[in-house]
Design a binder for these strands. Sequence first.
DNA 1: CTCCACATGTTGTCACTGTCAACATTAAGA
DNA 2: TCTTAATGTTGACAGTGACAACATGTGGAG
Lengths: 216, 216
Amino acid sequence: MAKIAGKGRKPRRPYHHGNLRRGLLDEALATIRAEGVDRLTLREIGTRLGVSRTALYRHFADKRALLAAVATEGFRTLRQHLEAAWVEGGRNREAFEAMGTAYIRFAIANSSHYRVMFGGSIDPKVCGPELAAEAAGAFQALVDALSSLQRAGIVRADDTLTTARYVWAVVHGVSMLAINGQLPDPVSIDGLTRYTSDRLLTGIDVGRALSGAPRG
Amino acid sequence: MAKIAGKGRKPRRPYHHGNLRRGLLDEALATIRAEGVDRLTLREIGTRLGVSRTALYRHFADKRALLAAVATEGFRTLRQHLEAAWVEGGRNREAFEAMGTAYIRFAIANSSHYRVMFGGSIDPKVCGPELAAEAAGAFQALVDALSSLQRAGIVRADDTLTTARYVWAVVHGVSMLAINGQLPDPVSIDGLTRYTSDRLLTGIDVGRALSGAPRG
DNA sequence: CTCCACATGTTGTCACTGTCAACATTAAGA
DNA sequence: TCTTAATGTTGACAGTGACAACATGTGGAG
């Protein structure tokens, strides 16, 4: 594994192209962002980087692998956004709401990227362990925050994993609705986001006797 | 528009191929179901129907149009499932839960089809009015049921549209999680479904003072 | 019944794509 | 220095979606 120039000892190109893998990922993401996934072509990525069409195959097994890597990066930055919202918000109930808002905001601001992230299966047996691990990492940020709120007695002490999945499903669903253009205008998106976090927290917080069974 | 043989007056082929459009749709859906969207090829659809590769273009503008038609049919049958669950369940709170279960069940049982339905934009300006209309129809089934529950005093009298969007987002999110393989086994799918409908209804039903603002 | 216009299906062809095999070049270590 | 593996290039190929030109059967006008 040849490493990057890093320290800047030699400012000229450290290799044939510098580090190409990084460039391929960036360029792929830029194209996806600008024109959508299905307009992404390996040849144009290479051309745009001043490199030939098949250079890519030294860094990714095939197109799916490239897309998986793009998706992996998406989950990584998503997790960063979530953790930032949680920490900067003060790790309380409001911070949890901020996490939800951050999630939806990320999905809307990077809709094409987001679609790649959830376009195919995330089963590790299908997509490879890296993507699955990074997706699990992003989910873990939610689990941790939720667990913290449970310990503080702010959220019902149901099975943490199930509750987290529920919350994840809600924000993911809202994001999808927004991305797919089923919410007419930004106002309705904002309204739904607000309503969602309100109703969601009313559903999972403490302070009310439960009629049904918790079900782990 | 040459109509189908229908009454069976003349059992021999009424036209070049009978009605091809129907066959194309069925075959496309079958392929999608069996091998996934990206393995769908126009040529093979034609071949499999004993028809040549470009016959399709007399019935659909291009591949995207075919996929849009497939998605349109998906929303139609989804609506049928939802309405059946609502009516047969007795149009009460339990029937509403049954709608949610039916939705998730449909998504899981027809995961590839479901992915096509939500793969691209549903904005009528992008995908054409038919798909948008059918998607809106499926959503309307949910709105109607919810409105009925609101009139019966079972669900909070918040803005119906916003509440419906919220519910839609939740079931859609759960479906996506299940489809993407993020729920390890059927047990956890069932558990999340149950937990979801329980927490969801706790969040939107009446009988609790609201802290925040309703926000229409 | 005849005949023509039109809907429907076919053949030929094209640009483009992902992918592989064979070859060229450069960095890095012995 | 010289080898070796990593990295990038060229040529090629089978498939794909799509279009234009052509063929064929249907149904209605006369």
